[in-house]
Nucleic acid binder design. Structure first.
Ligand SMILES: [Mn+2]
Ligand SMILES: [Mn+2]
Ligand SMILES: [Zn+2]
Ligand SMILES: [Zn+2]
Lengths: 146, 146
DNA sequence: AGAATACTTGCAAATGATTTGCATCTTTAG
DNA sequence: CTAAAGATGCAAATCATTTGCAAGTATTCT
């Protein structure tokens, strides 16, 4: 327990973020999730342990963490269009999304030379890109069979 | 003028959509735009010619047109996150978006064998995908130089 | 440690995109 | 021309996200 909190504090300090109870807890939830999470997901996970944490505080901190380079924000276009956030710790990658259970898997980036080709053809300065694949995961396929 | 209205009516009838003044006008705006448009874009274009058209009517019809296969809805992730709509008339393609002026260009789909590879590797049933490239168009580059 | 400063949070209200309920028109099929 | 089905105007509701402000807390500096 102590251990985990201390680790969260280290991470926050490394990024020049002031340490608060709520930030430690929010970060813990994000680390434990092992998948992209929404603000409301975090909020609901913390209902019991931090009864008067507000959703607006979660949002404020998600924005801060993004600005500080701890998280990236994803528009997964899943049902209600909530934003997802994931830790920036792995390589550049994309996402495979199950449109039934919202499970998210990482995908390698398929745009290797493509971006370069586009740059040459259009003279745009390329800044970023997004690739998403939507499908039905094996588990959901079983239950949706005819 | 007559000509244009009649063409819109034809299109609506072909798709089994009842013909109304507002639908004709909305569709005209979409055809004239030659680019993906938002509901508010359509709405503002029609302020003068249809003074009591409501934004909710535009939205209702965008949804209908999507359901009837006349339009596709795009999440371009441009500033306020408004949804864009474009005519379904051309090949499957993607979009190159200028993050300064919001200009949108079509892109060929770079995911050829990639989807198939993903299907084999993950056993997902692939339903759809999205590819977006964000950059700065030549015109905007001129004005944002150091 | 104690105080001053700067930053955070709780709380409530505001935003902005999109949707919805309902009463009143309008379109369309017969 | 008429009835039935569907569309629209209008206002209010939703939903995700943001913001203003006063009170609370972390950090910095004696
Ligand atoms: Mn990821
Ligand atoms: Mn297009
Ligand atoms: Zn699934
Ligand atoms: Zn531009």
């Amino acid at each position: 327990m102590k251990d985990k909190k201390e680790k969260m504090q280290e991470i926050l300090r490394e990024k020049d973020i002031r340490v608060t109870r709520q930030r430690e807890s929010i970060l813990e939830v994000i680390f434990e999730a092992e998948k992209p999470v929404t603000a409301t997901y975090i909020f609901s996970r913390l209902q019991e342990s931090c009864p008067n944490l507000k959703l607006s505080t979660v949002y404020r901190n998600m924005n801060l963490f993004v600005k500080k380079g701890l998280l990236r924000k994803l528009s997964l276009d899943i049902d209600n269009n909530e934003s997802y956030f994931e830790l920036i710790r792995d390589e550049h990658h994309h996402h495979l999304i199950c449109i039934q259970c919202n499970k998210v898997l990482p995908l390698d980036c398929p745009l290797g030379e493509f971006e370069e080709k586009i740059r040459e053809e259009t003279a745009y300065r390329i800044i970023d890109h997004s690739v998403k694949i939507f499908g039905i995961c094996p588990h959901c396929q079983e239950f949706s069979n005819t």
